[in-house]
Design a binder for these strands. Structure first.
Length: 501
RNA sequence: GCUCCUGUGGUGUAGUCCGGCUAAGCAUACUGCCCUCUCAAGGCAGUGAUCCCGGGUUCAAAUCCCGGCGGGAGCACCA
């Protein structure tokens, strides 16, 4: 009673309402957030990039802040110009809008300055031990002789890294703690020598920062407030903060999320590269792959990917991504604008002996006004093998949008008589394609790429099919719903890719 | 092996920080009905979770504590 009057706020129920989209962030002021999407241009963008970019953008947008798109291009051995372009194309396709683009490699002078600073302050040293020794010492928690070298030695060695040393002969190491439980803290590498020409800067630089050093500095100077990264970096948070601490630089907040990968659809270049090289898939845009280009070809639209990513929320728990959920989102988005056409697979011939029509207008969509198309008729049709095999003499079925027929003969050629044109809800309805002017197409049906870690030799089914002449008038890229068959995207003049049912 | 992260229906999540208002919401999948000249989309209904297990704290635990077990990741001069 007394409490009530003194502290009425205690009685107010805490806000537990439903939310949409990503969970709110702690202590963020409107307009004060800056996020970043920092891919390495070392491959084609895939669903994992999409998740990261969408999360980065959503949070920036949620609090009216900014998104910086930054290429973390500090390893010339792996990066190529075409990947910068591919990633940008992918982001634009996804509809992710960024406020600023930059390359980490454009900040090399600054990074060198920071490197010198961290060496000067005694928080880093140049190590000339070989790789084996270094990794052995890490395992055994032992410091090497280089770590006790004085400042003049480190300065001299640092200067020598620009010219004298060969790659592998000297690295800059952070003075961490060789006894730390966190192996990432056992004097990790900060910079190393790489003589491979950089895709943008060619031979201008040969000392390159590694991930931990570059990201920490870049995030800090870019004004990033929230740095989102996948969970496998979690152990490196301590390092990230330690580097900024020694450099006396502003610290962004680092948060992790679970990485996204579909079951049986690996994303790693280690797995994908051999498939492409051996010709087991047609390229990085093969519809079986989880690359953005592949999903686009397959008929997945960006809005569906965004909805899907947001439905996964922002968690660290390992997820087995539900591809069918993505398909469901996609289907709902694509359905209202997909033209309906007839298709027949494993076709069977059907002759309607008393056909008396020469053409018919068929609506392009059952609900939306998408116009009609004219189909020429002469009584000679194809129907799907799947439908044909259930037909018996005497059955009455309806040719969709056309008329009802009664089967008079089955076998290789099916014969029938037209009965009437009254719509009868209870009889089976099947699609058909006139044999005159039939268009022959191939349907590519992507299936799961890997089953139990094994490449699935049957991962791409190719089906021959017949469709209507109207198909020829559609642009490549058009999403079509083949009635009673499924959604497909027109990939070329004579090929479609199956999107989903 | 060591270290870290994680564990809610078939699947993905909400709720867990600040214990009760929900023996658990939403989506997807599945089933049925309605609508429909598609096995699509849309509408309605239903099946399905003792919230990993065991103990503890409490009037009260998915939510707090302890102990197990399962899954994932990191241990590079890659990001």
């Amino acid at each position: 009673m007394e409490l009530e009057s003194k502290f009425p706020e205690l009685l107010i129920a805490k806000p537990k309402q439903d939310r949409e989209g990503l969970p709110p962030l702690d202590g963020v002021e409107q307009g004060k957030i800056v996020t970043r999407f920092p891919p390495e241009p070392n491959g084609y963008p895939h669903i994992g990039h999409a998740k990261a970019a969408i999360i980065d953008e959503e949070y920036a947008r949620m609090y009216g802040g900014k998104l910086i798109f930054r290429f973390d291009d500090t390893n010339p051995e792996k990066e190529r110009l075409e990947y910068y372009a591919a990633i940008k194309v992918g982001l634009d396709w996804l509809g992710v809008k960024y406020d600023h683009v930059k390359n980490t490699s454009d900040d090399m002078e600054l990074i060198y300055k920071k490197a010198e600073e961290i060496i000067q302050s005694g928080n880093a040293y140049v190590c000339t031990c070989n790789k084996e020794t270094i990794s052995k010492n890490r395992r055994e928690m032992l410091s090497c002789k280089c770590s006790s070298g004085d400042l003049s030695q480190n300065t001299k060695r640092w200067n020598d890294m620009f010219k004298k040393y060969k790659p592998g002969e000297a690295i800059v190491r952070f003075r961490g703690d060789m006894h730390s439980e966190n192996t990432a803290m056992r004097d990790p590498t900060l910079l190393r020598i790489i003589d491979e020409p950089h895709p943008i800067h060619k031979d201008k630089y040969r000392i390159w920062p590694n991930y931990d050093f570059a990201v920490a500095i870049e995030d800090s100077i870019d004004g990033i407030t929230h740095a989102f990264r996948t969970k496998e970096y979690e152990l490196r948070n301590e390092l990230y903060y330690a580097i900024l601490d020694k450099l006396k630089m502003r610290k962004p907040k680092v948060l992790e999320f679970a990485r996204l990968e579909f079951d049986g659809m690996p994303v790693s270049k280690r797995v994908l590269k051999p498939l492409v090289e051996e010709g087991k898939v047609s390229g990085y845009d093969d519809p079986r792959l989880p690359t953005l280009e592949a999903m686009r070809r397959r008929g997945i639209v960006p809005e569906a990917i965004r909805k899907f990513v947001l439905s996964l929320s922002f968690t660290k728990s390992d997820t087995l991504a539900p591809f069918e959920t993505l398909e469901s989102f996609n289907r709902k988005i694509v359905d209202p604008t997909s033209i309906r056409l007839f298709i027949t697979t494993d076709p069977a011939k059907l002759i309607v002996k008393n056909n008396n029509l020469t053409d018919i207008d068929v609506p392009n969509h059952p609900q939306k006004d998408m116009g009609k198309r004219k189909i020429q008729i002469d009584g000679s049709f194809y129907i799907s093998g799947d439908d044909a095999k259930f037909l018996k003499v005497g059955d009455e079925v309806r040719l969709l949008e056309l008329y009802n027929i009664r089967i008079t003969k089955v076998g290789i050629d099916i014969e029938a008589d037209m009965t009437d044109n009254n719509f009868k809800p209870q009889i089976p309805k099947i699609q058909w394609v006139p044999r005159q002017n039939v268009v022959k197409i191939e349907v590519l049906i992507p299936k799961i790429l890997f089953v139990n870690e094994q490449f699935n030799e049957n991962s791409l089914e190719i089906k021959q099919a017949f469709t209507e002449p109207h198909y020829l008038e559609l642009n490549v890229g058009t999403e079509i719903q083949f009635v009673r068959y499924g959604y497909c995207r027109k990939d070329s003049a004579n090929q479609v890719i199956y999107t989903h049912k």
